[in-house]
Write a protein that binds this DNA or RNA. Structure first.
Lengths: 204, 204
DNA sequence: TGCATTGTAGAACGATCGATCTAGAATGAC
DNA sequence: GTCATTCTAGATCGATCGTTCTACAATGCA
């Protein structure tokens, strides 16, 4: 065999995430990365190939760690309407506590690298599809059990929720104001509520 | 006096907008800019100071040309509810025709430069405040004349519309799909509609 | 016609970029 | 211990970055 790695791949990958997350792809240099990961440039290239491949690994790790697990827990522990509310409220809380204004690495990537890079665009779009699917499952379940209005198609409501999620992340990076973000969310949640006239019409 | 300029400041500024719009701040080099503007690097620095100042000028010019005038026309020519719908539908149409996936220069700037640059953040936030104010005026007017539901506060609806605008711009850059963007918009417009129960309750 | 002033083109600056090379250190197989 | 292999640190590569310098061209004023 040969000489073993002196670092843990997972933990240096998380250091790389911190760099790319805070400054984006272009503005992060390979030297920044190597310093933060506490490995040499040669080790970085040896282990991850090049800067682009490292970014891809970092982005995928970010999704796997930050999104998939959280969604699973919400769907297990909360009724659908509450899961949607908890998810979006949590995003707002994170945005307001985000002193570095890092935002969401996926939204940042959606604007900086996705438009010009088909490979990374697929990673970003995959996440968006999965987030939309989470919202869609919640809305459909809520519509079935009567806790979410069925006036709007579940598909459209899921799309709206995805759009609102992206919008919150954008606004928070230039205007992290509680009133703005919470005010934005209120009408969306009201839209999910079952309306006064809705049940009557259904019973006729 | 002295030797006169050989270029028109407005038109080279528009060339600079094209560069920064398509690739962002970091990924656009001063040489890219000078080539597209058809002036020498020396003239660029002589006329605009440095890359950062040029970006600021370009961004401000983009807002002044692309947003202010469009909003004025919509508010003059359309009733408030229709003005909102026309504005957002137009954004979707632009996004779907955007073969280069340039998106909106202001949204791009909100994520790339606003978080780390107080000066540019002010330019971006100023635009967002003005867009929110446009939506707010429309919603208020619509609520007064009965064409927009008054169940939600005009302030919150305006914030939501701003968030949806940002969300559309983000999604379009990685998934420019008509179904997604138009589906997203439908429930928002439905939220503005006066509901069946609303008038009855008001008359009691 | 000089002179002062500003604009221009292109070379050049030092710094930094992503990436690679060199030399040597650390392992298991033999 | 020897060897093949993989890892490491640090120097180094050519390219490109934002910016400035040099030399000269074009103007109004004297």
């Amino acid at each position: 065999m040969a000489r073993p790695r002196e670092f843990d791949e997972q933990s240096v990958l998380e250091a790389a995430i911190q760099c790319f997350w805070a400054r984006g792809y272009e503005a992060t240099s390979v030297r920044d990365l190597a310093d933060r990961m506490e490995i040499s440039g040669a080790s970085l290239y040896n282990a991850f190939g090049d800067k682009h491949a490292l970014f891809r690994r970092a982005l995928e790790h970010y999704v796997a760690q930050g999104f998939a697990e959280r969604v699973r827990r919400l769907e297990e522990q909360l009724p659908p309407r509450k899961a949607i509310e908890a998810f979006l409220s949590d995003i707002i809380a994170r945005s307001l506590n985000d002193k570095q204004r890092k935002g969401c690495m996926l939204v940042n990537a959606a604007l900086e690298v996705a438009p010009h890079d088909a490979e990374l665009r697929r990673v970003v779009a995959d996440f968006q599809v999965r987030a939309e699917a989470f919202f869609h499952r919640c809305v459909e379940a809520g519509q079935r059990d009567g806790t979410i209005s069925a006036i709007q198609p579940a598909k459209d409501l899921a799309r709206l929720l995805l759009g609102v999620l992206m919008g919150i992340r954008v606004l928070a990076r230039s205007r992290p104001e509680r009133e703005l973000l919470e005010g934005l969310l209120r009408p969306v949640l009201a839209l999910l509520d079952v309306h006064n006239g809705e049940l009557k019409r259904a019973k006729r």
